[in-house]
């Protein structure tokens, strides 16, 4: 296989380990929430860089988001990605996974020939794991989901993916789309000179809107999104908690009794 052209799809997400919910309104409190690169996406970048380092070629990172999503692209450059595209446009706002996959897919097509698209398995804010398969479908290419190992073999892709009962080796034609999980690799550290360069004026980050990728407005953002959030609420735990007391042996015996009463053991 000659040089590889690899696109990596990455997303800026709020750090959900710090999520705070307004107890009165049941809505998300965004103030002061830290933004990070989606954890699985770091592994996608690493997988792309490893393939490039073996075979030569180019890695392009693509992110859709508000202007501040440039931060995660700078991080990608700091890891060694060659160039970046930030897809930002008011018309992209409110996109569900269908509209997002259309927008990302249009961008990949606009960039021309490619061999692989690599994405993180899922994003921690939405947890849908739908973008990978939907982009693959938009591009009309096969997909390897939950990959932990990738290898270019001849003119195809040999990958190991996690299955429910172990792992599977699958073989695919190229181009293909791959989503990776955190078991795939250990992402490299940022290389400070590269990260510094990513903040320069001439850093290779192009900012594109809908017109630049030839997207039809009916397909992007809220207009292109068939789903709507009807309401949000905080999960309720109206459980009656029984607290056991006494010596460990007493508590253990009581617990066994309770579990037998509940017929769960």
């Amino acid at each position: 296989m000659d040089k590889l052209d690899i696109k990596v799809l990455i997303k800026q997400v709020p750090n959900t380990s710090e999520v705070k919910i307004d107890p009165h309104t049941g809505t998300l409190m965004r103030e002061g929430m830290e933004s990070i690169i989606n954890p699985d996406d770091l592994h996608a970048i690493e997988a792309a860089l490893q393939l490039r380092d073996t075979h030569g070629g180019k890695v392009t990172a693509i992110s859709m988001g508000p202007p501040q999503a440039k931060d995660v692209l700078r991080e990608a450059l700091g890891m060694g990605v060659d160039e970046c595209i930030l897809l930002t446009d008011r018309a992209f706002a409110g996109a569900d996974t269908l509209a997002t996959s259309y927008t990302l897919g249009k961008c990949v097509l606009r960039l021309g020939r490619f061999d692989l698209v690599i994405a993180g398995h899922q994003a921690i804010d939405g947890d849908t794991a739908q973008i990978g398969p939907q982009v693959a479908e938009f591009l009309g290419i096969p997909q390897v989901i939950r990959a932990i190992r990738l290898e270019i073999r001849g003119d195809g892709l040999l990958a190991e993916r996690t299955a429910e009962e172990g792992t599977e080796i699958v073989k695919s034609t190229l181009p293909a789309l791959v989503t990776v999980t955190k078991e795939a690799n250990d992402p490299r550290y940022l290389f400070v000179p590269l990260l510094m360069a990513a903040f320069e004026e001439d850093a290779p980050i192009r900012v594109w809107g809908g017109n630049d990728i030839g997207a039809d407005e009916a397909g992007t953002g809220l207009k292109g999104s068939p789903t709507r959030v009807r309401r949000t609420f905080t999960p309720s735990h109206n459980k009656k908690i029984e607290r056991l007391n006494g010596m460990p042996a007493d508590m253990a015996r009581t617990l066994v009794e309770r579990l037998r009463e509940r017929k769960v053991i």
Binding site: S17, L28, I124, R228, R230, R231
Partner: peptide, 15 residues
């Protein structure tokens, strides 16, 4: 569940 289970969201596809 949304936002790592911090919120529940009810989604519709009305059209």
């Amino acid at each position: 569940p949304a936002w790592g289970g911090n919120l529940m969201a009810t989604i519709i596809s009305p059209d």
